[in-house]
Design a binder for these strands. Structure first.
Lengths: 207, 207, 207, 207
DNA sequence: AATGAATGAGAATTCATTCAT
DNA sequence: GATGAATGAATTCTCATTCAT
């Protein structure tokens, strides 16, 4: 198994310019076409470096993709955790998190593409750093749900993972058409509607 | 543009044996590995035919995948529509449909793999017959929601597509881990829980 | 070596309809693209028959081409011989033949394509019936030249084949651009000019 | 559209050794068989490189052929232009050029094969660099004819392109049998005879 | 006279990847 | 830190062709 070449790096430590160019090139190419349709030659040319250099920094074309995703996720997860800080009440936190999540996809179409479409069909992904961060995010979401249960505002008769899956599944499917067909996402309305549904369900309330 | 070679065929009309063998071969191979890891040589050998024959019936390796998916979907969608027949009340229909849907994934891991993991990252899929059937299914689901709104049991303050996306997203994410890691799915409990959530939301009821 | 399947046939004897359809199909396809770009599948489809039928009548895809060419040549050579009949004087015959030749290319672009572009790079052609007819035409042309020499109107200090090659080479290169780029040919002016050149040369006459 | 990969290069700038080996390999193989009968595997093996390398330097098997032809033509056209330098009188120039031309074919059977038999039936050729050089040669030939007209030694009542076509057609057809059947060409006699014909025509002079 | 089904065998081409410099 | 040159090994796909019916 090709093992990632990423070196743990302290925050802010700057990466070699060649590496950066390569990552940016992939980012830019993913705006145009599917990962499998992107060749290392493409990447090198777009980056203005040689193909060989890719293998200095990445063990693999796929490793490059995973590291790019990890960079996105690093930002995304950290950001999401921060975004919720200081908010009181699990329900408000949840509303905020859902908006934040949709907003991330809205603002980073490439990130969304990778996460929703390009990595899941590849077994190795589930051993990657990137996947670890996704799990960290899942846990974070679950912790908010737990908080809500403790507060008595979220029901406790449903396994928490099911709740998490509904939330994340809902978010993804709201964004999926836009991601696939490269359309814009306006996060506000969908986020609100989704939250309303998740919180209160689709039934009309019987008084 | 590689265009599908499928010819519209009246029900029961038998397909050439070679074609069937090829489709079955792919089905079987998808139980073992990812589509991209399956070669035409693999398929031909498993089917006991020559690679060339694949191209007599399918314009493409990908076209073969899409036609296989279409066959699954033909069965699945028709089945789903039948499954709901005779049931009174949109809510009961919805419960039935959700259970049916999860149950389909539970019983056809390969079908689930293809639909959830193997086709979406490929632009051409969205021009395929298979995708048309997915849309037919979406419409069907929406029509039940509409029925519920008409009955006054489903809220009318949320756009129907958002409701649909939440439902389908929820189903998919419930099944996804099992599909990815090849674990078994027991449809009953998750279906119930998911329905409860979708109908009533995650909030505790304030009397 | 694949041997031609053509059977000697008395004039007017009608050929099986399938065979005719195939030949016509090739004719029509050659109007659109190069021979090598035409597949047997193309031909069969255009002809409305199965590929297998091609091999009932022709030993080879190439044999089909050669037989088509032979049909054209049969007409062309016979016609050319007739065209000159009754004309008195080798020079007049030559003028007539050159015009006739260019006119044939003008009216049968596909014939010209085959003869000038599609068969020469293929060794087998030179063993075909078609090539025999080309040689018959060459002889016919040479016999007119000989006649002219006997009449004292054509010089006898140059080997006859060289004269023949100049004439045929001239005709071909006059027509070649039109054949290649699918432009129209107006036979009259070029034929006249070419004849003038061939007869009197490019030099101004010193009286 | 497969586009040539040739990069404009200043004279003397050395090409990568692999590229040279590939071109030489094709040259050598064309001495033995038709282009279509030569496989990339053949070429690679003869060159002592891998097939993949061919595609680093050429977009296509056909592109390789065209670039080889272009190299020949570069030499041929330049040489022809030089060959005529210093000669006084359009007629003498023409005689020299015709001899030169035939001599080129005589000494480079492969070059002749390519130009006369292997490229014309392929549409893409007419967009290639090689074809541009052929046109440059045509112009050069026409300029000599114009010179002769200005000198009063070449008749002005025939369009110059027709004259050019007769000359080139004559040369080609003189050489064609030798090129096709791989026979030797002795340039001297045919060149003389052809020139005599072109200059004075086939008619006997009427005093 | 014609076809449906299938094939053999290669052929071009792709692409990620390596390594000496 | 970066490159130029080259490769290995597959992989898809093509296409003429055959044969039992």
């Amino acid at each position: 198994m090709a093992h990632s070449k990423q070196t743990p790096r302290s925050r802010g430590q700057s990466r070699p310019p060649g590496r950066t160019k390569i990552v940016e090139a992939l980012k830019s190419l993913l705006g145009e076409k599917e990962f499998t349709a992107i060749t290392t030659a493409d990447i090198a040319q777009t980056a203005g470096v040689t193909e060989a250099l890719i293998y200095k920094y990445f063990s693999d074309k796929r490793d490059l993709l995973h590291q790019l995703l990890a960079e996105y996720l690093d930002y995304f997860v950290t950001r999401a955790e921060l975004d919720v800080k200081g908010i009181k009440g699990a329900v408000h936190k949840l509303r905020r998190l859902i908006w934040s999540h949709i907003n991330m996809y809205a603002g980073n179409r490439v990130f969304a593409r990778i996460l929703l479409l390009e990595v899941r069909n590849y077994r190795e992904y589930f051993n990657s750093d990137a996947y670890q961060m996704v799990k960290r995010y899942s846990s974070f979401l679950e912790s908010i749900v737990e908080e809500g249960i403790a507060e008595g505002v979220i029901r406790d008769d449903i396994p928490i993972p099911v709740i998490r899956q509904l939330i994340i599944g809902g978010i993804e499917h709201i964004c999926l058409p836009a991601v696939i067909f490269n359309r814009d996402i306006d996060p506000d309305a969908p986020a609100d509607q989704l939250c309303d549904l998740i919180l209160d369900g689709i039934s009309t309330r019987q008084p």
